[in-house]
């Protein structure tokens, strides 16, 4: 468990941002459900719960999720009952435990780029913008590649479209982190493929979507391509070799849904 010297609840994002950047050893507090594993000593904890970032709204084909919305808020919102055929709701409702989802925030998940997050793997293939207080709008694609930003994540914006999406996950028990998660989205001839829990953070594939766009439908070729371009590592849940194998299996299953 970390130690904190001070705790504040700013009333606005501006105020929170000022505190965050002016104090180098400060930490934004979302749900706190991951932070507790840290052993750091933090000078200032900045709790965003009174900054009005807990909302989910839908307007003009865009769904906005405030950073302080919990994973349960997403799971239980009427908006996600229908959006993407309920896929977002389904993916989120399989994450760890109900208790955790009631506290863990969307902002915390996205900002921290948690490697094991199924949600990030799915977001990676959707049209998602990550909105920061100071930096402004960044596409999820760019965000996943960027070094950590000392800025406050305000919301994520998902553009509703008719992407055909398949999400696959492999876990050893139902209440666990995934050994691997994989999402494929297709819009006509355009493909996006993200692989998470490698065990590192969700990564978008580059070469394999091209192959698919060019019309390659040979399963072995595209699977080989994907497992070649995505790096895997060992951890307690699986070896990199096994992950590579499972990636191929999940990819095949995903393709059978989107092709």
């Amino acid at each position: 468990m970390f130690k904190a010297v001070d705790y504040v609840r700013p009333k606005s994002i501006g105020e929170a941002h000022d505190l965050f950047v002016s104090n180098t050893n400060s930490q934004i507090l979302g749900g706190g459900t991951y932070l507790y594993l840290s052993k750091r000593t933090i000078q200032l904890l900045i709790d965003l719960q009174e900054t009005s970032l807990k909302y989910i709204s839908q307007k003009d084909g865009k769904i906005r999720i405030g950073a302080m919305s919990t994973l349960s808020d997403v799971e239980e919102s009427d908006i996600f009952k229908n959006a993407f055929n309920g896929l977002v709701k389904k993916v989120v409702s399989d994450i760890w435990s109900y208790q955790l989802r009631n506290a863990a925030t969307v902002g915390g998940t996205v900002y921290s780029r948690l490697g094991f997050s199924e949600f990030l793997t799915l977001l990676a293939v959707l049209d998602v913008d990550v909105v920061f207080h100071n930096t402004g709008v960044i596409s999820i694609k760019d965000f996943l590649k960027m070094p950590p930003l000392r800025d406050i994540l305000k919301e994520i914006v998902i553009t509703e479209n008719d992407l055909k999406v398949s999400f696959q996950v492999f876990k050893r028990t139902h209440f666990d982190f995934p050994v691997l998660s994989l999402a494929v989205a297709r819009c006509d001839d355009e493909f996006r493929i993200a692989v998470g829990s490698r065990p590192g953070c969700a990564l978008l594939a580059k070469d394999t979507p091209k192959l698919l766009s060019e019309g390659c439908r040979d399963l072995k070729t595209v699977c080989d391509s994907l497992i070649r371009e995505i790096p895997f590592a060992d951890d307690l849940r699986a070896s990199s070799e096994y992950r590579r194998h499972v990636c191929g299996v999940l990819f095949k299953r995903a393709l059978s849904e989107v092709l």
Partner: peptide, 15 residues
Amino acid sequence: MDSKPILSCCSLAVQ
């Protein structure tokens, strides 16, 4: 917390 189950081991009292 507000009628929803949460884990008190990883929530802060101040929160």
